[in-house]
Design a protein around this nucleic acid. Structure first.
Length: 426
DNA sequence: TCTGGGGTCCTAGGACCC
DNA sequence: TCTGGGGTCCTAGGACCC
């Protein structure tokens, strides 16, 4: 059996841990630039605030209902996530971290356990040790566990058996049947809006309908991905178990600007900053890139402006994770991309075609001193690790005009000593 | 004035090879 | 009058996830 543990309204719950006065109040956390709502408390959802809703359209609602608003604080959420995962692993060693707020655990190595009791114990332990509320779904496969988890959250009135608060166990056949019958196709993990429409058009409304669909039809309409989902729902595991995070194949850093920019200098600063961030992420992964892709675009939502969407991909002769080299190529790309006269809103750098740094093929005419450069990068990473963003390459500059808006940032409770407040005396 | 930022996998079709 | 057959690699685009 597979367990899926999912943190409830995770970013909001993190903010609540450090400010208990936020309990029972509508709270939302905004995306970068304070753009859209990306996490909502139950109270905020009840007010009709949708996932991804733009903040500037909700100003009245926020004022009227005194919604508490936060800029996203990823350093904090990352730390809290690690703590939650640690608690889970202390119960079940075989786990797969699926996202910042979700973790799968495989129970097959455990001898007989009462699943409902296990779920209850997990919820209580995570709450006691981290303050984060979680929901638990237990079933035969990952897809079914996902569904059980969702079912525990969304359909409390319908659950007949095998449920505690925030838990649903789909173990016996009748429990699975009940869950499938009460789950719509669009709520199945792996079925997005496009496939949901196609399924509905063909008379498949619920998961119980979908499970009866002919396999060759599913294969031709939804490819092998859809077929895997179908098998998973029938109780046959066919989604890979990945206990260790796989190495990334692409790494991307991109942002919208705090305000529209036009100048080449600002665009250059931004691209340099993102390229340098990609280089850092690459070194952390232990990978080198063979290609770099840079894109630059205007704001699609501003119909009155002339639009510009362009990108360039450059091959890198010898795979690298050196900031110096990546900056060089990023600047070449930037010169190809930038055209004056547009109001730019967003740019980004993607490093692609990654290879492990241990098996990097040298270029034919090597002219950089790799050993020396590696030392410089190592020092740079250590400085960053210990003191934050204190050293930069000249092109990045300081005093950015286009910095993110983060007007509602909570304190860095877990990462900065001077902002620490005593929360938990455990 | 203001609309996120990451990722993955699969498929079809073109280019190219013998 | 005739116009092969089989393969690989790469890329763009679509669909999905959080």
């Amino acid at each position: 059996m597979i367990v899926l543990i999912d943190c409830n309204n995770f970013y909001v719950s993190c903010e609540r841990v450090f400010d208990p006065s936020l309990q029972h109040k509508p709270v939302i956390v905004l995306s970068n630039n304070d753009g859209c709502a990306i996490a909502r408390s139950d109270e905020a959802k009840a007010l009709g605030i949708k996932m991804g809703a733009p903040a500037f359209l909700m100003q009245d609602l926020i004022r009227k209902h005194d919604v508490k608003v936060f800029s996203s604080n990823y350093a904090l959420y990352g730390d809290m996530s690690a703590k939650v995962m640690e608690v889970i692993r202390s119960f079940i060693p075989d786990t797969e971290v699926y996202s910042i707020d979700e973790i799968f655990a495989d129970l097959s190595s455990l001898t007989y356990v009462n699943l409902l009791k296990l779920g209850t114990a997990l919820r209580e332990a995570v709450m006691n040790r981290t303050g984060i509320p979680v929901t638990i779904g237990i079933a035969q496969t990952k897809t079914l566990a996902k569904m059980a988890n969702r079912y525990a959250k969304k359909a409390p009135g319908l659950r007949l058996q095998a449920a505690g608060p925030g838990i649903f166990v789909a173990e016996e056949n009748f429990q699975v049947v009940e869950m499938l019958a009460n789950t719509k196709v669009e709520d199945i993990w792996g079925i997005g809006p496009q496939h949901a429409i196609r399924l509905q058009q063909n008379g498949f409304t619920t998961a119980a309908d979908f499970i009866k669909a002919p396999e060759d039809w599913v294969r031709s309409e939804m490819s092998v991905v859809g077929l895997r989902t179908l098998y998973e729902l029938k109780g046959f595991s066919c989604i890979k178990w990945e206990p260790l995070p796989a190495k990334k194949k692409n790494i991307c850093t991109s942002r919208q600007f705090g305000k529209l920019i036009t100048g080449k200098k600002e665009v250059r600063q931004a691209i340099a900053t993102f390229a340098s961030s990609c280089a850092q992420k690459l070194r952390k992964e232990g990978s080198c890139a063979r290609k770099i892709h840079v894109f630059l675009q205007t704001n699609v939502h501003r119909k009155q402006d002339e639009q510009y969407f362009h990108s360039v991909t450059l091959d890198i002769p010898a795979p690298t994770n050196s900031t110096v080299e990546l900056l060089k190529y990023a600047m070449q790309a930037m010169d190809l991309l930038y055209k004056p006269g547009y109001y730019y809103q967003k740019t980004g750098v993607i490093v692609m075609d990654l290879v492990p740094e241990t098996c990097v093929q040298m270029a034919l005419f090597e002219n950089t001193n790799r050993k020396k450069e590696k030392k410089v990068m190592k020092t740079l990473d250590e400085l960053q690790e210990n003191f934050g963003d204190v050293v930069r390459f000249a092109t990045q500059e300081f005093n950015k005009k286009w910095n993110l808006r983060r007007n509602h940032l909570s304190k860095s409770y877990t990462t900065k000593f001077d902002q620490l407040s005593v929360v938990n005396s455990e």
